[in-house]
Design a protein around this nucleic acid. Structure first.
Length: 353
DNA sequence: AAGACGTGGAG
DNA sequence: TCTCCAAGTCT
């Protein structure tokens, strides 16, 4: 059941080729966990500066648990998938309150925390606690499909992959898991392979069959839907209006210029109505400043931004529990905005608005 | 179970 | 410019 040869080959390769990363060669489960959360669907080079900045500000789990959502989101700003940040914060608070601040080394307890799924629990168990628990991320999945010569991502095949991985990880499980991820990022990539440098090629079925890139079969994706959006640069005296997005939804907890989805973003009447309904603001909408394009993983948006004046006579902005603020342009850095806003801010600068 | 959820980089 | 991807999880 235990594959000594593969275990040795991987460890030899890893000891020679492992990447030096800020979360390597430590066994603090808090730091390992944080790195895994940040690395979800996100490239290593993107994560490194965010990870360093976070650890500098929050060196311990307790410091996170005692922080607040706004400050944490500000550190996460630009990294994307913001529910990761919200869930990590919640999970740290749960550990503080229910586990005396100690990260549970029991996989079922750890796996029950928000934002912790099968991959992260396996990764933390193996890397931080040195337990022989499999962890399957995109890299390891691809490598194992190729290694076993499997093409279809069926439930049955996924089970075979887990069983096979378990035979690899008896000795130094955390290093084996990380060696496979390094292998997947440098040698056994989605669209290119260097089988000549791979420590597994001698027993890799996809390699032996001659066409490793054909394993596994990729699903073709649907094209991105497009959404038209109107945003407003709304001024009152020297300040501009920003609004906070509702927790829980997309980009939850982040700030943005007021914006709405419309079918035709040259028609501003709906925008005017929306700001009246949501914030009890009366707007005079002036010239269009420009457009920006911004894509998410699941849709592409075209945002037209208009110059607006607040002409409300009454100061009553508390309707519907919507949180808004009037800020000076110099205060932008104090709030976490999603990327589309930074593109809009650049546009304002460029047009001397 | 398929779609939502962000962003930047590579080709 | 466009498409696909990069250490997944939640609903």
């Amino acid at each position: 059941m235990y594959n000594t040869n593969i275990n040795n080959s991987l460890l030899l390769w890893y000891d020679k080729h492992k990447r030096q990363l800020p979360w390597r060669d430590i066994n603090d489960p808090y730091k390992i966990w944080l790195s895994e959360v940040m690395l979800q669907q996100t490239q290593v080079n993107t994560v490194v500066p965010y990870y360093k900045k976070w650890i500098k500000n929050y060196p311990t789990l307790l410091s996170v648990a005692e922080s607040n959502m706004d400050d944490l989101l500000k550190l996460w700003e630009g990294l994307g998938y913001y529910s990761r940040c919200r869930n990590f914060f919640k999970a740290c608070q749960i550990i503080k309150n229910d586990y005396c601040g100690i990260i549970p080394s029991n996989i079922n307890e750890f796996n029950s925390l928000p934002g912790v799924g099968p991959y992260i629990s396996g990764a933390v168990m193996s890397i931080a606690f040195n337990k022989s628990v499999p962890a399957i991320d995109g890299n390891i999945s691809r490598i194992m499909f190729r290694y076993l010569g499997l093409r279809n991502k069926t439930k049955h095949n996924k089970k075979r992959i887990i069983s096979k991985l378990i035979t690899f990880i008896k000795l130094r499980p955390g290093d084996i898991i990380q060696s496979l991820m390094d292998l997947g990022s440098s040698i056994c990539k989605s669209y290119s392979v260097k089988c000549g440098e791979c420590p597994l090629s001698h027993s890799c079925k996809a390699f032996l069959h001659g066409f490793p890139l054909k394993y596994p079969i990729q699903k073709n994706k649907k094209s991105l839907p497009k959404k038209n959006i109107i945003a407003g640069f709304v001024q009152k005296n020297d300040k501009m209006l920003i609004v906070k997005r509702k927790d829980g939804g997309a980009l939850g907890g982040l700030w943005e210029l007021p914006m709405i989805i419309v079918s035709d973003n040259s028609n501003t009447s709906l925008f005017k109505t929306s700001l009246k309904n949501k914030y009890n603001l009366n707007l005079k909408i002036n010239n269009k400043i420009g457009d920006i394009i911004h894509s998410f993983s699941h849709y592409r948006m075209n945002i037209a931004i208009f110059n607006c004046e607040n002409v409300s006579t009454r100061i009553d902005y508390s309707s519907n529990n919507n949180i808004i603020k009037w800020i000076n342009r110099k205060e932008i850095d104090n709030y976490a905005f999603h990327k589309a806003n930074h593109k809009l801010f650049e546009l304002l600068e460029k047009n001397n608005v």
